[in-house]
């Protein structure tokens, strides 16, 4: 670099006629590097393509096998590979119930915490609390699974509702714990959205005689709505895709039930249990987890696309 700079200075001192060539001189090395860099950027495309191909390929085998029927898959409520009955609803229902419970916990609490941090807390307090939230968000989910099984179910749920009413494995415990797990994510993302709302809007509101609550809830939160919605959708996608908590705490067997105090295996929990055991690659159980994963992939993909769209569509641009 420096070498080059010096050379060019010398050159400019005495310019022999006809030595300056301003035509674009593409160096070979640069071309190679450019290609390598492009490939590194494009590897993500390979990942996505591979995911889609793998999922479709195995799911194709699954739906092609004589026991399986596509309409039955999406319409019946029994999942019993042993008897050849593959209706995804028990797994899907359990996924939905645990996710909804998680959101019912995480969204109000996360948003409340975010409002407190961004609108009420002093800058010093915020400086301490925000990193704590981020650390919390980094706790591995298997740790939360342990927490659900050793504390939430026996101490809280069975303690409050009675041992006979709450099964050891149950969706409520998994959902609540998942809610606690996602709470920091919702709080952190919403706090970012709230603090991005410019001061001038808050001043405008105070200038009209609004209290802090009125300013927060009626001006700042609506102004940050796109970011908050995105946080909620991302949280939903997290909950749907979360595996370890439900694998440990929700139950180890598909069951079609709406009672959150009962055990029922979720889509992710089922994939983990089946693939964790010794299964033959030729068995229908093996291909069935790809079919479940395909449904799961599209559910989360839809949620992620939706969140991106919400952000772009409803974002207020503040300079």
């Amino acid at each position: 670099m420096e070498q080059e700079a010096r050379v060019s200075i010398e050159r400019s001192a005495v310019i022999p006629a006809g030595t300056i060539n301003l035509r674009g001189r593409r160096r070979f090395g640069e071309r190679i590097i450019e290609t390598i860099v492009f490939i590194c950027g494009a590897i993500s495309i390979f990942t996505t393509t591979a995911i889609v191909i793998v999922l479709f390929q195995e799911a194709w085998l699954f739906f092609g096998s004589p026991e399986v029927d596509l309409t039955e898959f999406f319409s019946t409520t029994t999942w019993q590979p042993e008897t050849g009955r593959f209706g995804i609803w028990p797994l899907m229902m359990s996924t939905l119930i645990t996710s909804i419970i998680a959101l019912l916990v995480a969204v109000p609490l996360g948003l409340g915490a975010a409002i407190y941090l961004s609108e009420y807390a002093s800058p010093t307090a915020r400086g301490y609390l925000k990193p704590i939230l981020e650390v919390l968000a980094g706790v591995p989910t298997v740790v939360y699974g342990y927490f659900a099984l050793t504390f939430v179910t026996p101490v809280i749920l069975q303690g409050l509702l009675g041992k006979e009413n709450v099964e050891i494995y149950n969706m409520l415990s998994a959902g609540l714990t998942m809610g606690i797990m996602i709470l920091p994510l919702v709080a952190s993302m919403s706090e970012d959205a709230l603090s991005a709302v410019p001061r001038s809007l808050r001043e405008g509101s105070y200038g009209l005689g609004a209290t802090r609550l009125e300013t927060s809830v009626r001006v700042v939160v609506p102004a940050a709505l796109s970011g908050i919605l995105a946080a909620v959708i991302v949280a939903m996608s997290r909950a749907v895709g979360e595996t370890m908590i439900v694998a440990l705490a929700a139950g180890a067997g598909p069951r079609f039930t709406f009672n959150p105090l009962q055990a029922a295996e979720t889509m992710t929990g089922h994939i983990a249990r089946i693939s964790g055991g010794d299964i033959s690659y030729a068995s229908i159980q093996y291909t069935s987890i790809f079919a479940i994963a395909l449904v799961l992939f599209f559910m989360t993909l839809l949620l992620n696309l939706l969140s991106g769209w919400v952000v772009r569509r409803f974002r207020e641009v503040y300079e």
């Binding site: 410019p198 200038g207 009209l208 005689g209 609004a210 209290t211 009626r218 609506p222």
Partner: peptide, 22 residues
């Protein structure tokens, strides 16, 4: 204020914001 700071709401709701909270 120096820089116009309408709320990201409708014109109608911008006007009614003050009366409503008060």
């Amino acid at each position: 204020f120096q820089k116009p700071n309408p709320f990201p709401k409708s014109i109608y709701d911008n006007i009614m914001f003050g009366p409503r909270i008060n």
